[in-house]
Design a protein around this nucleic acid. Structure first.
Length: 316
DNA sequence: CTCCAGGCAATTG
DNA sequence: CAATTGCATGGA
């Protein structure tokens, strides 16, 4: 099936946005970098492929065969997806730079990284694949899931055909077989079964309802409704809230966050293991430093800065 | 060879 | 409570 790319949009951003860092900062696992022209491409659930390219620090070129995505005009979708509506100056507390001047020198260069408002179901699946393995393997799993269970679309570009796979719908994964899905999940059958079970719940309504109400309820209540499902613990529930449900107050703590809470902020409890009690305690401590409203947004910028500047991690 | 990668759940002391 | 173990693979 081949169709032509028809529509071209230029999105203007008031603030600087670094597309590459944003798309490869560890929150999105399936954007592809096109080496020919340094554009980025992805095919979301039930949409036509999306091609993005930086025109300047303040402009993004968007090419799509459709005028809208998820029922929104492209401009509105991009603004929401990349949270261009969020004022970066409101993300870190006003006194942060004066309390941590040395840290701020390093962190401020990463403020163009955006936390995105991604699709809840896609985020659930991808972060359920992110347990105890490296970023490289996580990306491979998500790519394989899309190739095997998504819809194939081929577009003709000036450089030749480009093949895309949409992210699978909930019903597509709900009807998957454990042994076949496990091929895509690092041969981990437990993980595959958990994803199938979650997809069925999403399809039948329980998870969908939790998502619809996610903006109104407390963070604790939202996390509890997500943690009901096998394979979703507190960390992944917080990731779903932050990256998939636009809850920028959610503050997931993983090995990297744990490390910088000790190294940068001297929180001694961060040296101990992440038991449930300690996890909650560390979140409270983090909110004292980063505030409540954008704790997770700021935390992700710190996460990306830690991995790249301190750990010197090269992998996406 | 060992250790660690964006953990979770079940078991044991 | 806290600590340990199985789940799986690959790269440093």
């Amino acid at each position: 099936m081949t169709s032509k790319l028809l529509y071209r949009f230029i999105i203007k951003c008031e603030k600087n946005i670094d597309l590459h860092s944003t798309l490869f900062s560890g929150q999105s696992f399936r954007w592809i970098l096109n080496p020919y022209d340094h554009s980025y491409s992805c095919n979301l659930i039930g949409t036509s492929p999306l091609l993005l390219k930086s025109i300047s620090d303040h402009e993004i070129e968007v090419i799509s065969s459709s005028m809208s995505i998820y029922g929104k005009p492209i401009e509105d979708f991009i603004t929401s997806y990349f949270t261009l509506d969020i004022d970066i100056n409101a993300v870190f507390p006003d006194d942060f730079h004066s309390i941590y001047p040395n840290l701020w020198e390093m962190v401020k260069g990463f403020r163009s990284v955006k936390v995105m408002r991604q699709d809840p179901f896609e985020i659930m699946v991808t972060f359920m694949c992110a347990q105890g393995i490296g970023m490289h393997l996580i990306r491979r799993q998500v790519e394989m899931i899309a190739e095997r269970y998504g819809e194939k679309l081929v577009f003709e570009s000036e450089h030749g055909p480009l093949t895309f796979y949409s992210f699978p719908t909930p019903s597509s994964l709900a009807s998957a077989v454990v042994n076949e899905l496990a091929v895509c999940t690092n041969n981990n059958r437990i993980r595959a079964a958990n994803i199938i079970s979650m997809a069925r719940s999403f399809e039948s309504g329980a998870m969908a309802i939790a998502c619809v109400r996610s903006g109104e309820c407390s963070l604790d209540a939202l996390r509890d409704s997500l943690c009901v499902h096998s394979g979703i613990g507190m960390k992944i529930a917080d990731c779903i809230a932050l990256f998939g449900l636009g809850r920028f107050d959610a503050f997931p703590i993983d090995t990297h966050v744990k490390q910088y809470l000790w190294e940068w902020f001297g929180i001694e409890a961060a040296q101990r293991s992440l038991t449930e009690k300690n996890y909650r305690y560390l979140q409270d401590e983090a909110r004292k430093i980063l505030g409540n409203e954008f704790a997770g947004y700021a935390g992700h910028i710190l996460f990306h800065c830690w991995r790249k500047e301190v750990r010197k991690m090269k992998a996406f």
